[in-house]
């Protein structure tokens, strides 16, 4: 299961529409969640509208949060999204078999059995989360809190039975053509990582749309520089199957 978690505090202003690229991600089987940080002042009418739209197009959820609640919000969203994705799949099956539309329509006894299966899958499904952090100038004072929240998310992910890993990006890069920068490739252990965000150049531009495209590329090819890289996916898939066998 693949998720993008976008953390931002404002509106995009460069490149493709992030709503469009989020929709593209969804078609690739990647759910897009968005957290809008609202520490100082507001995120603005336009900003919060965009956040909602991106999440909607990306099949995920959106929420405004202060930095002090960030870790909590991230974990809640991640977990809910996993449950929801599984629930959607289960609902499709139910419709197929029973003609019912959702788990909620089942009588309590039957619901109980279905939820048992959903819980089991929630715990064991392999999970990949790409965190995409807005590093435009206004986000600078919040980055320490963001990093802390990411580390906390890793603790929770590691407690799952299924394979879980995350990757961290920030955007924009140092020069105009660089839409997103990979700070940390797929990992399940951040304890050795001293500092997630280094060499940050805070620029005013917020190319949210193009940055999402870069992350989609990364899910596809394992790199953000096009498709010229090694297919390391194969052995990984075997690992995923192993998780199901339990």
């Amino acid at each position: 299961m693949k998720q993008i978690l976008l953390i931002t505090d404002g509106c995009s202003n460069v490149g493709q529409s992030p709503v469009m690229t989020a929709s593209l991600a969804r078609q690739e089987g990647i759910t897009v969640n968005v957290i809008g940080i609202v520490d100082y002042g507001t995120i603005g009418e336009l900003g919060s509208l965009e956040i909602r739209e991106i999440a909607k197009a990306g099949g995920g959820m959106s929420q405004l949060s202060g930095t002090e609640k960030l870790a909590q919000t991230m974990q809640m969203m991640t977990r809910k999204t996993v449950v929801q994705t599984i629930q959607q799949a289960v609902n499709r099956e139910l419709k197929h078999i029973l003609g019912k539309t959702s788990v909620e329509d089942l009588p309590p006894d039957k619901r109980s059995e279905v939820v048992e299966v959903v819980d089991e899958l929630t715990e064991t499904t392999p999970l990949e989360i790409a965190l995409l952090i807005d590093a435009s100038a206004s986000m600078k004072p919040k980055l320490a809190a963001v990093e802390e929240a990411i580390r906390d998310l890793m603790i929770s992910l590691n407690a799952r039975e299924g394979m879980s890993r995350l990757a961290v990006f920030h955007f924009p890069g140092r020069h105009g053509g660089e839409d997103a920068v990979l700070d940390q490739g797929w990992t399940s252990d951040l304890s050795g990582v001293r500092s997630l965000f280094q060499h940050m150049a805070m620029r005013g531009a917020t190319p949210t749309g193009p940055a999402i495209l870069k992350v989609i590329d990364f899910f596809r090819y394992g790199t953000i520089n096009g498709n010229q890289t090694r297919p390391e996916d194969n052995d990984e898939r075997e690992g995923m199957l192993g998780d199901y066998v339990v």
Binding site: R79, E123, D152, I155, S156, N158, A159, R160, E161
Partner: peptide, 24 residues
Amino acid sequence: NGRSVKQFTEWYDRGFWNAGGRTA
């Protein structure tokens, strides 16, 4: 037992105090 802890509250959470994971 052995699964991940579903809900927790910061102060009482082992992970919050860097004292271990969130495996139940």
